[in-house]
Design a binder for these strands. Structure first.
Lengths: 202, 202, 202, 202
DNA sequence: AATGAATGAGAGTTCATTCAT
DNA sequence: TATGAATGAACTCTCATTCAT
């Protein structure tokens, strides 16, 4: 709020966002109290307002933090010249490792962003749409050059990828013993080939 | 509070559960107020306690309502002698039409049941596990008789089906213009064959 | 309320008063709910209003019931021509056996009557004052004819008797294993002779 | 909620306890609202929770405050080497001046402690029993060395002293025009010698 | 940079009371 | 004579927010 740009402040603010993300992920936006967040940070409740002007702003920051470089990575994937398979696996990898690395910010974005007022959701919506469109673009290109079957509903396909990744992301966040790499492998395979094909196809 | 078990009471109680489901789905458990639920029902806030002894009990009832016959339908599917494809499509159909028909109770079960205290979640957990195991059983049987490829991780597969259905269920609840039947068709196809195969395979 | 004077109604109303007395004694006026009273009576909450027009009226009835013949018995004692000792013992006996027999109505009168509005307390106040004055009169007469020492503060003495009886009454109500007759004996003796005197005096 | 243990906080907390005592004494535990207590303290209702975590805790604190040094004074009396008369008078004095000085905390302890849950009453029970036992010990000693008549029921005697003091304490709290010293004198005399003896005995 | 203290709005819950049946 | 159903007011408690220090 006051001297915003000192590196120390930035660093503390980042800690605050992570703390808020952890608490929101655990208790939900409405179920979490500012006291919870403050004590996660190791400060007193009133002091939180040094980093966030309101609880709502905390949610906003967490959501932005959760989706920001996740979208950027998708840009890189879409711009790359890899095969469709490689791009799909990169997408799944990016998505699921976001869940694990960034702790819970992406989960918060997915589950709680609807509690932000319309106006604060515009930016998030743009980023989300942008993400989906990039992914759709990858599908379209793959259909065009024959890597995927003609007639595939690319919008549907993109949504399905995102949905499946979110679902597995939740499981990963909740169960830390899961092997993320294994999940990535298997999920990519299923998305590509389904359950059906005999080993010969793979 | 009372339990006259008169049909009239039962009927009103069902309305109350539906109203609670709608509100919880829209605003989340903690974001929803008992006033919201009551006014959805057309009664005054205090009167809600004639049907629920607490807000928490309302959530419990909604979750039970949301998952109950959804599990039962899976029992029927698992007991049937259909091909794997038919069973998978029946599963997806049951899951997604639950979302549409029962309004939002199943969504509430998925998203909000964690806010119930451990003890009230036991029954739900049992039902959920039962569901997953039935589905896993279907996969195991299909692998055994060669309908699915050997080496398929059936636990992973079941989780993926459930996750993908939940993800599409959310979209269906949120966007009532979606054609549920079309989603069912496409999702089943993707799960069976993936995005990859050329038309010849389908 | 409606047909007030049928013997059956009177009998049920008496039961209602006793039930209210029991509940008020156990939980206090404000701590007791009309549901408590109704269920003590074995009826449903709303039905209580057939016997009492309000919770407050229930308290009033209980208090009146608790003090009524208790005062009348004091009138008889005061009018009798017994020795002071006999009158004192009769007083203590009447007081303590009221506590035991009438269940808890007298206790309620003593502990809860202050929660009645001024206007509903007038009658009770009169009866209470009357009681104390009768007792004071007994003391005055005994001083006058030399049975008690000259200079005794009779107002103080009467208050002390009442206070000691109430205190023991509470204990009796709370501990049903107490031997009421023994308490009466010992209390009367202490009031007459105190702790000090050697056996010779008794 | 917090416990800064700063002297300022301690001082305000003590004020809060006194305010709660005053209100509980006047209206009873259930009849008193937290709004009443807060406005007695001159703060807003919600702010009360800065000092008490619940209304029940407020009652607990008041009861502890009411009985604490009252018991301690009895320890001193019991340990002293005075005559029985002096000890009895000291007891009555301590008891009745507690009522006057500590405002109404002791009265609240006597009348409202039963509304505390069993577990919060354990400590109070111990202190109360300790008090009674100390008093009984004084009686026993006096019987042993011939200051009191043989065969005196010391348990009964102690209960009677406590009961009579409580009864007069109530009157003192309710009627501030009473001369406490005079009450102490007369009550001690009655307890020692009863109403009966001729002046010669005193 | 952080905290103790307070606030006011709103939450869930209880409950005395009413009334048609 | 009694009840099921509803109500509205009051209550306890929580919490985001503010601010002097």
């Amino acid at each position: 709020m006051q001297n915003p740009d000192s590196p120390k402040y930035q660093q503390q603010k980042l800690s605050a966002i992570r703390a808020a993300a952890a608490v929101f992920a655990r208790k939900g936006y409405h179920g979490a109290s500012t006291t919870d967040i403050a004590s996660e940070l190791g400060i007193k409740q009133g002091s939180l307002y040094y980093y966030f002007s309101s609880k709502e702003e905390a949610l906003e920051q967490v959501c932005l933090f959760g989706i920001r470089d996740y979208v950027q990575r998708m840009e890189e994937i879409a711009a790359s010249e890899q095969s469709f398979e490689a791009q799909l696996m990169a997408t799944v990898t990016s998505h699921l490792s976001s869940y694990r690395e960034k702790n819970e910010a992406l989960k918060v974005h997915n589950d709680e962003r609807l509690y932000l007022p319309e106006i604060k959701r515009i930016k998030l919506k743009q980023m989300g749409s942008h993400y989906r469109e990039l992914l759709e673009g990858i599908f379209n290109a793959a259909v065009a050059n024959g890597q995927l079957r003609a007639g595939l509903d690319c919008h549907f396909a993109a949504q399905t990828v995102i949905g499946a990744c979110n679902a597995w992301g939740d499981l990963i966040v909740r169960d830390s013993s899961l092997d993320v790499f294994e999940v990535i492998q298997k999920l990519t395979e299923v998305l590509l080939f389904g359950f059906r094909p005999q080993p010969a196809h793979t």
